[in-house]
């Protein structure tokens, strides 16, 4: 086993083809630091996330994937001891600017969590909730349209269209997760963050969510945290490898999985870690 430790590396992670990355950057993070009290959880991370692309965050448990993901829609604001430094811009606008309303930001940057977490309400209300609180609709018919189209985009419509009034919590795990994706879509986000969205799902339900992610890529920028390297390889076009709070390497998924540059990335993806 190699003897790398938590030594801070040079700021710039390896990016196997940075040149093309300039073209369609949706999210630009620069020198981001995150602290939980004394814990330095994210160390000087800079990354460009491309529009209408699935970017996977991989790395061993505790390396900071979820922490960094939560920075992208300011979910860390809700954690008292958490402090974020650096700059994160979406479409060139600093999302940590005091003028930015975090609630509006989270409508633009939706999130899907590890455990499906439907509200204890009807399927319909689960989807309608966001558009209602954001005042996106005037009439009931508009809301009906949003509910239907969100469920369609999430590939759930056929399965639930006859029981929109039954509780969301009565669906299977995989259906619940697609319901949560539909709920995220309902407020017309531009970015969808997913934190291990399939870890509680069986292989078939996982395949359906992966298929959905692939379809959503056409219209949304997607960032997915996954502990499954095979999943990262299947669903993403870009992969970023984190280790001990550092972004070690980012590149086209195909390069990361066939020919990673950094020794730590190699060790991790080939199953040689620690």
């Amino acid at each position: 086993m190699s003897s790398f430790s938590g030594l801070a590396r040079a700021t710039d992670p390896i990016d196997q083809n940075k040149a093309t990355a300039m073209e369609n950057v949706k999210i630009a993070a620069e020198k981001v630091q995150v602290f939980y009290g004394e814990t330095h959880a994210i160390k000087d991370v800079s990354i460009d996330i491309r529009a209408r692309t699935v970017t996977a965050f991989i790395g061993p448990s505790g390396c900071g994937k979820s922490t960094f993901l939560r920075c992208l829609n300011r979910m860390n604001d809700t954690i008292d001891i958490c402090r974020v430094e650096g700059r994160i811009a979406i479409d060139n606008e600093d999302i940590y600017d005091p003028k930015v309303d975090p609630v509006q930001l989270r409508a633009k940057v939706g999130m899907v969590f590890q455990k499906p977490n439907p509200f204890p309400k009807s399927i319909y209300d689960n989807i309608a909730y966001g558009p209602r609180i954001h005042g996106l609709v005037r009439r009931k018919s508009e809301l009906d349209d949003i509910v239907a189209s969100s469920l369609q985009k999430a590939g759930l419509w056929e399965e639930v269209k006859d029981r929109l009034d039954s509780p969301g919590t009565g669906l299977s795990g995989g259906q619940q997760q697609r319901l949560c994706i539909a709920r995220a879509i309902a407020v017309s986000p531009e970015v969808i963050l997913m934190d291990e969205p399939c870890s509680a799902l069986d292989p078939i339900a996982t395949a359906k969510v992966e298929e959905l992610i692939d379809e959503l890529r056409e219209n949304y920028t997607i960032v997915i945290v996954t502990h499954s390297m095979q999943q990262a390889a299947r669903v993403s076009q870009r992969t970023a490898f984190f280790h001990l709070g550092n972004l070690v390497e980012v590149g086209d998924t195909q390069d990361i999985f066939t020919n990673p540059v950094d020794k730590r990335t190699q060790d991790y993806i080939t199953g040689r870690f620690g």
Binding site: M229, F257, T258, Q266, I269, T270
Partner: peptide
């Protein structure tokens, strides 16, 4: 069995 990656895959 292993879904080899990187160097192993090659």
């Amino acid at each position: 069995r292993r879904q080899p990656m990187g160097q192993d895959l090659r």
